[in-house]
Amino acid sequence: MDKTIVIIGVGALGSHLVLLGRNWPVRFTAIDFDRVEKKNTMSQFHSRMGVGRNKAQAMQQAMQGLFGLRLEAVPHKLTADNAARLLDGADLVVDCVDNAEARRVISQTVRAAGIPCLHGAVAADGSYARVMWDASFSPDEGAEGVATCEDGEHLPFVAFVAARMADAVQRFLKDDEQVSSHLHPGGILLV
């Protein structure tokens, strides 16, 4: 039976991860409350057709239309109140959100439920990223709210990080291996 991968946040990292995972024998669920803005089309796998739509639903429509990939879209914000319900049944959770509070809720929920979880986290200036399994991850505090990846400035690095996340998921799907890494524009540091 196919595994269910729940991706929380389909912005820069999450949208590209779905794109790179389109050949996996899994069921995807995308959770995102945000809407696609025109500027997002420069740094995220969202097109002009999706502008104004909910990101999870725009992702669902794009993947269905371009690749015939079925994806469940959940257009809600994940909170401490609904996290257990939204993540119930997941075989793998992938955290691609953009704030420490949501990351804490995700970690608390997956730890309580025993669900494997991969976190993707990028610096605002596109100079560093972490692709970490939950056991060794803690969110960075106090760095939200600054502009990032304006006009797709860091798109090559975002794609690099998303590819590393896709590789980590593939290894996990193949034999439950959990490989964490730190990335900078010049390479990968295994941790």
Binding site: G9, V97, N99, A129, D140, A143, T148
Partner: peptide
């Protein structure tokens, strides 16, 4: 910057300390 400490592992047999920028975004 954030300090991360990683003890030696079979794959990387020496301890490392990493000094890195914060990574809030996804």
């Amino acid at each position: 910057f954030v300090v991360d400490r990683f003890p030696a592992t079979p794959a990387i047999p020496y301890a490392r300390v990493m000094l890195r920028p914060k990574t809030p975004f996804g």
